[in-house]
Simulated scan of single mutants.
Amino acid sequence: MTVFAMAPDGVRIALHELGDPDGSPVLLIHGFSSNAQRNWIDTRWGDALAAEGLRGIAMDLRGHGDSDRPSVGYTVPHFLDDVDAVLEQLALPEAPGAIGYSMGARLLWRHAGTRQHAFRALVLGGLPAGDPFQRFDVDLAHRALRSEAEPGEMESFVVELAGIFPEHDPATLVTLAGEVSHTLFDPELAPPSAPTLLMTGDKDRRASDTRELLPLLVDGRFEEIPGRNHVNAPVSGTFRRAASRYLAEHLRG
């Protein structure tokens, strides 16, 4: 059953349950152009979480999945407010763990870094040390989406991802990427203090510099996901099991 949290601007954020319903809670946040169903549910993360006694709560980012898709309102502060709204809706007795992938990992880094007691432990997958949207031209991407211009490398990547799943609106996702790019990811501004496991595919060219984030963490660890790139890492059994095991170790007791 899908339930909704209400963001401060009235946007509904869809929440999906997986794993052990009586387990320790873990918030899951997918990447750009994905959604909870594609990133976590269809890829059997529920089995891995349940095996470690964890209850997964997967949110659809605004503009994705079953969440609302406003015409504007995709700045970084909007996404941070959405996580706050989800945590308020859940009203958990203690801080949960969290797993994020790619854009979801950047969001969790920012959220946990500015709200140091929001999460007890983090697993961040496919997280680059820089911001992939820093060279993104949103107007060019919109023209490319309408076949009116030849996109650059970053615009081509975003347009391709925006159209990968039929349940999404590509123009909305291009707008989203443009608004997010107004606040570039700077991991040095406010690193998380919670124990954090970083995981990246050993064939991931988009996040090949993840290890550079380790010195910023008080309690950080890095593990490679063998044989995976940025797109297919979330379906890795190694990723599922290592992430679930790490969070179970930090959420027990």
Score class of each variant (00 low, 15 high):
Gly56Asp: 03
Gly104Asp: 01
Arg135Ser: 11
Ala36Pro: 00
Ala50Gly: 14
Thr175Glu: 12
Ala58Trp: 09
Ser102Trp: 00
Leu87His: 10
Glu94Ile: 00
Ser193Arg: 12
Asp84Cys: 02
Leu92Lys: 13
Val159Lys: 15
Ala118Gly: 14
Arg55Cys: 11
Gly63Trp: 04
Pro166Val: 11
Thr75Ala: 15
His168Trp: 01
His64Trp: 04
Pro128Ser: 11
Asn229Pro: 09
Ala194His: 04
Leu189Ala: 10
Ala58Asp: 10
Gly130Ile: 03
Tyr74Pro: 08
Ser236Glu: 08
Glu223Pro: 00
Phe119Val: 07
Ala248Thr: 05
Leu18Gln: 01
Pro195Arg: 01
Val3Lys: 04
Val138Thr: 15
Leu197Gly: 07
Trp45Thr: 10
Asp66Ala: 15
Leu80Cys: 05
Trp45Gly: 08
Trp45Met: 08
Arg110Pro: 09
Ala118Cys: 13
Asp219Leu: 03
Leu54Ser: 15
Asp186Tyr: 00
Ser181Val: 03
Ala98Asp: 06
Arg252Tyr: 03
Ser67Lys: 12
Pro8Ser: 11
Glu188Trp: 01
Ser24Tyr: 05
His182Val: 02
Leu197Arg: 02
Phe165Lys: 06
Gln37Val: 03
Val231Glu: 04
Gly253Asn: 14
Leu61Pro: 04
Thr2Ser: 09
Ser71Tyr: 02
Arg205Met: 09
Asp47Cys: 08
Leu198Ile: 13
Lys203Glu: 09
Gly130Asp: 14
Ile164Trp: 01
Gly178His: 09
Pro195Thr: 02
Asp22Ser: 07
Met154Gly: 01
Glu94Thr: 14
Leu184Phe: 01
Ala51Lys: 10
Ala129Leu: 07
Ala243Gln: 06
His111Ile: 07
Asp204Glu: 00
Val231His: 10
His142Arg: 15
Asp42His: 12
Asp131Leu: 02
Asp169His: 01
Leu28Phe: 13
Val83Ser: 09
Ala95Asn: 09
Arg115Glu: 08
Pro132Phe: 08
Ala14His: 14
Ala95Trp: 05
Val83Phe: 00
Ala112Gln: 10
Leu173Ala: 14
Val218Arg: 11
Leu145Gly: 14
Ala149Phe: 06
His250Pro: 06
Pro128Leu: 02
Gln134Thr: 13
Val76Tyr: 00
Gly227Thr: 05
Trp109Leu: 07
Phe79Gly: 04
Gly10Ser: 04
Ala149Lys: 12
Pro151Asn: 11
Ala129Pro: 14
Gly10Leu: 05
Phe222Ala: 13
Leu49Tyr: 00
His64Ile: 02
Leu124His: 02
Leu161Trp: 12
Met1Val: 06
Phe239Tyr: 15
Val26Met: 02
Pro191Gln: 04
Gly46Leu: 02
Glu17Asn: 06
Gly56Pro: 04
Ala144Glu: 05
Asp60Phe: 07
Phe119Leu: 06
Leu90Asp: 09
Leu251Ile: 12
Ala207Arg: 09
Pro195Leu: 05
Pro215Glu: 08
Pro226Leu: 00
Leu107Ile: 13
His142Val: 13
Gln37Gly: 08
Ala194Ser: 14
Gly31Leu: 00
Glu223Tyr: 01
Thr210Val: 10
Arg120Tyr: 02
